[in-house]
Design a protein around this nucleic acid. Structure first.
Lengths: 239, 239
DNA sequence: CGAATCCTTGAGAAGTTTCAACATCCGTGG
DNA sequence: CCACGGATGTTGAAACTTCTCAAGGATTCG
């Protein structure tokens, strides 16, 4: 049995099909679950929840992207996560954790689906296969964070920026004839806040990478990665 | 029904009681599972598995501690995780992931329990409650990594080192009259490799913190944290 | 098209790394 | 139990990188 729902036409089922954690369910099971989904829209810059909020729901991104960050004592944003379509978050509130560890802000117009804690627990017990999917997804997230930590730990800034570009290429890249086109989820300033360096420094390093023929910026929001191998060598991600 | 097994006397049940993920099981269920556990001992410096290994088991630390690291292109170790008693790892190999993302090396004499992939999947389906425990544990790990990333992202090196000390205090600290005694899992060099800075810089910063009366080194393997509040203010972890 | 935002570039100040020498710690074997 | 040797940690000074502040340029969105 095929589903006839497409984006925008059938909002209640939308996220179910985009999200790996429900992929093991039958259409019937999905229908059952979809009845208890809550939907929300956020504009760019809008806050989904703040640090310390006792949010009690799991949020799945249906469209758009969201950054999770904390404010450092220097008053700077430290970005911890960039979530995009299909990612979920807020789950810490459902499993033992009490308060949110970070603030979540929409990076662009974003649509979400969410479950309350109670509903979600019911789902989990009714469909144990979902738990395994969640574990797999969390594993992916951990792997991504490991990769980010590896990038952040590289001594040279060139290496750190290169590592982040590779991470982004992996997640947001699209293969084109000349290389990989990366739709940057973050501005230069965002990248700087992710890596914990000055915005100007990111500019300079990116400029140098362009001179070296490794990348070619396409506007401010895209980067064409011409020589991924150079980056991999530089960052140690070539194994 | 109480268990009569104590450390060293009943190796097959040992890890079961130390590991949160099995805490929901009855004694009987534990007995069943314990029959399929494999045991291993490692000396300090011994490798449990290497990057790229297609390891197929879940490893639980029963005694000792283990670091997970990669080698950077500069030839330096980038430490990604420090696992200690009760932590498990290698799970990436069980859920979709194929290869290990890092090398695991014992930091001290270490005893482990492990399951094969197949056995573990059987357990998971037989006792669904374990899946939820695993999710909770992974959440904790993610929270810890978020904290580490936050530490790494702080601009000032003082803040980065302070953040790491707080993380360690949280996990390895023991409250004593004068403050918190931290049993460092890593050497100065290890700390440097965790944060991606020079060993000498760690020495200098730690020296400065001592002069400021924030910490007092106790030998090379312990640090007495006298003024945790100072660190929290410095790192933004005071919320 | 224009305003607001975001990005780039320059030059001096500040911080970190490097290299080198010395001190300390720890385990080994006598 | 002590002495030795390798490993680990500390300190100093010069070189390098990054940061900060400031100004000008580019991009995006309404």
């Amino acid at each position: 049995m095929k589903c006839n729902c497409y984006a925008g036409e059938c909002p209640h089922n939308l996220c179910m099909h985009k999200v790996p954690i429900f992929s093991s369910l039958s259409q019937e099971e999905m229908s059952h679950i979809s009845s208890i989904i809550n939907h929300n829209n956020y504009q760019k810059g809008e806050i989904l929840f703040s640090e310390e909020d006792s949010l009690r729901s799991l949020i799945i991104i249906n469209e758009g992207s969201v950054k999770g960050f904390k404010i450092t004592p220097e008053g700077r944003e430290q970005i911890l996560h960039v979530f995009s379509v299909g990612d979920f978050f807020g789950e810490r509130n459902l499993f033992g954790g009490q308060k949110s560890a970070y603030t979540a802000e929409a990076l662009e117009p974003t649509k979400t689906c969410s479950f309350t804690k109670d509903d979600f627990h019911k789902i989990l017990f009714a469909y144990p296969g979902i738990a395994i999917k969640i574990i797999e997804t969390l594993e992916e997230r951990i792997a991504r964070m490991e990769s980010t930590m590896q990038s952040m730990g590289v001594r040279s800034l060139d290496g750190r920026i290169g590592g982040l570009l590779l991470d982004f290429a992996d997640k947001y890249g699209e293969v084109v004839p000349e290389g990989i086109l990366i739709r940057l989820p973050l501005s230069r300033e965002g990248i700087a806040n992710f890596l914990g360096v000055a915005r100007e420094t990111v500019s300079r390093k990116l400029g140098q990478l362009e001179i070296d023929g490794v990348i070619r910026p396409v506007g401010n929001k895209n980067i064409l990665l011409l020589d991924g191998e150079a980056l991999k060598t530089m960052t140690g991600k070539d194994t």
